[in-house]
Amino acid sequence: MSTATSRRNLLIFAPLGVALAGGTGFYLMLRGLQDGSFNPRGVPSVLIGRTVPEFSLPPLESSGLPTLASADLLNLPGPVVVNFWASWCVPCIIEHPHLMALHRRGVPVYGVNYKDRANDAQAFLTRHGNPYTRLGMDQPGRVAIDWGVYGVPETYILDRQGVVRWRWAGPITPELMSQDVNPLLDRLRA
């Protein structure tokens, strides 16, 4: 009789336990939202661990930059960053200084200009600076669809073999730079 009673007494704590577990989960979600590690709307990239699909893009003539094709993303001397952007995209302006910083540090940043006009893209680069060593124009947005891009900006990090190791949908933040981008680039360069 006494074991049954004590078991029933323990059962009283069950709702408390459920509430505690739920509360902990909710707290972790909120913290993740704050530091950017949890994104409920985030779509995981299918490309992680794979090489990029085959493509070739026209260049932005006025920039004089070489264009970008899938062949340029194989057998590389080191990791590269591929950034989808557009002049009409406000978060692209926010993340732009980080791309410039990567460029200054000698990390190749390749750009794919998404659904943009050549003049507008050029004006953006003239005004904010050009971080790209290669730049392709994807006006129809078809290459972006092949990559699984669902908005700009989106940033990918590829290793020497051209395998996608990291993808971020949204602007790059200082936290992302110090927690994800820089450590990964260091590791891939080693």
């Binding site: 779509v43 995981p44 990239s45 299918v46 669809i145 092949d146 990559w147 699984g148």
Partner: peptide, 8 residues
């Protein structure tokens, strides 16, 4: 599905 994964 190949491009956007299960999410799509």
């Amino acid at each position: 599905h190949q491009r956007y994964g299960d999410f799509v």
